[in-house]
Design a protein around this nucleic acid. Structure first.
Lengths: 261, 261
DNA sequence: GCAATCGGTTCACTATTCAAACCGACGCTT
DNA sequence: AAGCGTCGGTTTGAATAGTGAACCGATTGC
């Protein structure tokens, strides 16, 4: 593993620690030598990727990623890219489809497209989606590194309905099922009478950035429908990912003064 | 300069290039060897900080900074941190105060707090603030690296009123004045009858992240008032910066015995 | 078909990183 | 107040990783 990878892993690890962390703690968490961790932190700090608090001497994530993230979002906005695919999916399955995004350690709904049916599921933009109680959460966590999965499983599992997965073992089994299928299903996990199917939208590096989820009334969703929704969601997720990361979007050809020295 | 610094500089440089860039172009821009630039890009890509487009082979900034930036914003939100200071400033000067933030290459208004006076200036959240035509823009650009300043000066300078600075020379002079004063002034640059004073909110690394701006009707703002507003804005900007980046950032108290670059 | 340039690779040379011991400071217990 | 554990931070030479000039094959323009 190269130096840069290690430094970025440190940054990642630091971002996952809630609040600030001390040098020794960081070094331990990243499995780095204290001296090395310190040098990394100093270099990262120079560029604003981490900050050190003067009095406590602790480190926390800096504001540089905010700046870079905004530039990225301004050039290649996730929502605008994904929207047409969400609409297409609604037309295909005629059920409410919502798009979620991982934000500050939490998965939340960023866009909802309703089905045309009178009897349909309503989802509010901004809804937080627990990993264990929603199809979106399941799809998301199932694509995360093993460490995150374990953390999610061992966290307290709040119950929302009589059907919420509150048992770590069944949560784990659902994750495994999701990984095998390529999509997740949550039967009344968050709200009674609703069955949701979801697939994670992945970066080229296979990190999940969000989910595309179909929410249908229980009465309309037999096993066949659920599978159909799952496959449709997975296929849409892949297409969003391609559009967002892969396929050349050719935003604008750089005017580019005559270089060629 | 260490490997990590070089890699982060590359990331920074890439973020400043609008659209995608090729390997050779990036290497040249960062003054790195092609081989080195490539290794950096590969490592950065592994962590999602850059992406390579499959067919054009070009690189662009990735989605990892978005994720990190969101975590940072969730833990230490700029707006929530700055708001009380904005309110305090309104009480102090009793004129409309607005807070702007640099977002994806543009400066825009993110919050407005009105004065209690009936005759006051109205500013809409979301307003884009051109560098040459607003106090906010002037304050912001004046705290940027020289290269950005030159780029702003040589960009086309759109006229909004009869008083807008459309001449590069006077624009440059205003920037120099701003740097000398620690605050900026725009007399009717964007809208007739309004005089604004602004100060940039800086990171510990002296990068501007946004501005705090006082907008007053021209009739109420004599030279003394303008100076008073300028100093109040500068002082508030500093306090926001302190609150946001660590209430206690001073010169290192640690004996930095070894001066590693 | 030549020249220039592209993205990407190789490999001898060299700068960085590692690990462990160390320092002074702080906080706790006795 | 002495003893202990831990903190952030530093030093050391041996081990390891990064570096960059030259190179490769593929495109592109003339």
């Amino acid at each position: 593993m190269g130096t840069i990878s290690k430094a970025l892993t440190l940054l990642d690890t630091l971002s996952l620690m809630q609040s600030e962390a001390g040098l020794t703690e960081i070094a331990k968490a990243c499995d780095l030598d204290k001296a090395t961790a310190r040098r990394f932190l100093v270099e990262l700090e120079k560029h604003g990727f981490v900050e050190q608090l003067a009095e406590s001497r602790k480190y926390r994530i800096g504001s540089a990623p905010v700046r870079l993230g905004r530039i990225r979002e301004a050039c290649y906005p996730f929502l605008r890219t994904a929207m047409p695919f969400v609409k297409r999916l609604v037309e295909e399955v005629d059920e409410t489809v919502h798009l979620s995004e991982f934000t500050g350690g939490r998965l939340s709904t960023v866009h909802v497209e309703d089905s045309t049916k009178a009897h349909r599921v309503f989802v509010a933009v901004g809804t937080l989606l627990p990993f264990h109680a929603t199809a979106s959460g399941l799809a998301f966590i199932s694509s995360c590194p093993a460490a995150d999965i374990e953390a999610a499983i061992s966290a307290p599992l709040q119950s929302y309905t009589d059907y919420t997965l509150t048992d770590p073992a069944s949560f784990r089994q659902s994750i495994e099922q999701t990984q095998a299928d390529g999509y997740s299903v949550s039967r009344q996990g968050l709200e009674a009478g609703v069955i949701s199917t979801s697939a994670a939208i992945l970066t080229p590096g296979a990190r999940p950035v969000g989910c595309i989820t179909i929410a249908a009334p229980l009465v309309r969703a037999d096993a066949g429908k659920v599978r159909e929704h799952g496959l449709a969601a997975a296929s849409t997720a892949r297409r969003i990912s391609d559009a967002f990361f892969g396929a050349d979007r050719q935003v604008r050809t750089v005017p580019q003064s005559r270089r060629t020295n």
